[in-house]
Design a protein around this nucleic acid. Sequence first.
RNA 1: GGCCCGUUGGUCAAGAGGUUAAGACACCGCCCUUUCACGGCGGAAUCACGAGUUCGAUUCUCGUACGGGUCACCA
Length: 455
Amino acid sequence: MFDFDNIEAQIPHNGVRTRFAPSPTGYMHVGGLRTALYTYLIAKKAGGAFILRIEDTDQNRFVEGATEIIYSTLRGAGINWDEGPDVGGPTPPYIQSERREIYAAYAEKLVELGGAYRDGDVIRQKIPREGETTFTDLIFGDITVQNDSASMDEGVLLKSDGLPTYNFANVIDDHLMGITHVVRGSEYLSSAPKYVLLYNAFGWEMPQYITVSPVMRDAQHKLSKRNGDPTYDDLLTQGYLTDAIVNYVALLGWSPGGEREIFTLRELEEVFDVGGLSKSPAIFDVAKLRYFNAEYIRALPPGIFAALAEPYIRQSVKNPNADIAALAELVQARCEVLTDIPEKLDFIDALPEYPAELYVHKKSKTDGKISLDMLKSILPELEALPDWTRDGVYGVCEALAAKLDAKNALVMWPLRIAVSGKAVTPGGAAEICAVLGREESLRRIDAGIKKLEAE
RNA sequence: GGCCCGUUGGUCAAGAGGUUAAGACACCGCCCUUUCACGGCGGAAUCACGAGUUCGAUUCUCGUACGGGUCACCA
């Protein structure tokens, strides 16, 4: 005989308890991450507990290793759970497939209470023919449906394999785990009134429901891996920072109210408020994510950024003696995603083939002829430069420009083209010379002179 | 199709009866400048439509259009 009194005696009644209850389907999509985030924030804001529960009642959809992806995604994002399969807690187990006796017992009990009935080898919910049912959601307000409408079908609660369906497991677990606030997607909104009947039949108090609209790819499609939209892991490999993703995702469908947009997870824990949640779907805008990412990259301490950037720098800079810190510094303010880095440094190891037209630049007032003169003038001066530093090189250029009564750009443009072979570079001529070193810089200037002479 | 939900610039959005209808991204222009980026300044751009209610509707009500969700022994 199942001991209902014992399990119900374990239900915590100490403040806010929220839960994120994903199905282990193999990856974490952005919408799921956002739901997890909101759920977590509601708990943390209230000083409550955030619980992780794995909903694996569909054995057909179970994907090996998927639970680990959920763990790593959440942990990577800093969304730590207070109770869960791996850390335990007062209301175990936290994996639904391990709770089958509980569901079976409650399904039987519900039959006795008149809220369900046996139909062959399944148990279905009993819905009254008359009247209406009102479901209350914190975001959407009251939603009332007629009990005889099609959406109030007498759905299966306990399947023939003995496992519960989502609609049932969810109600049992939320109650038994003492959940006070449930955050979930709007796809569950239409089945929600049926929960009211379930809770009423058991005589249980319902948690607060907070329904969030989906994250969209465009006006008519949800973000989905199937359509090639990035998952959280994809974004990471595309060079986005976890903090930027979390920050951006938090703002998709939620507004802090003021003008501030940049919030760390800890700050969100302070300011989050369900009142700022929106009813309408939000379109995921990569351009804005890139902006957040760029902001986070620029705000990183140089040492931290250098460590993150090193693998990307190494993709194009193979020279073992390369000064990673110096290269990182050049690129930090100039990349929006880490994957921007390799292309920006592709001229460091070797001077690329480049067209002489690069020496023509209207704004700097240079062309091939002038550039040749500049390079010829600057070469001996640089050869004589005692300290090969950014400031040293810059000083030489500045002095030459002053002597010619010209703008610095007249000298710097040809020099930068000669040492980089690129129209756009991270940093100016002096920075690049400093990074390349004396020998290589002089060699490239000389090559530039020969190139222009050959024109 | 039935039922449920939504609709402020290209995107995220604030505003909840009286506002010059915030702010951010993206875009455009100018400035700064050693190219680019950063930064600064400025610009263009929004209340889906139609009826009500009201002295007055972006804001309230209804309808229309458009969009979404849901109608499984999936969650």
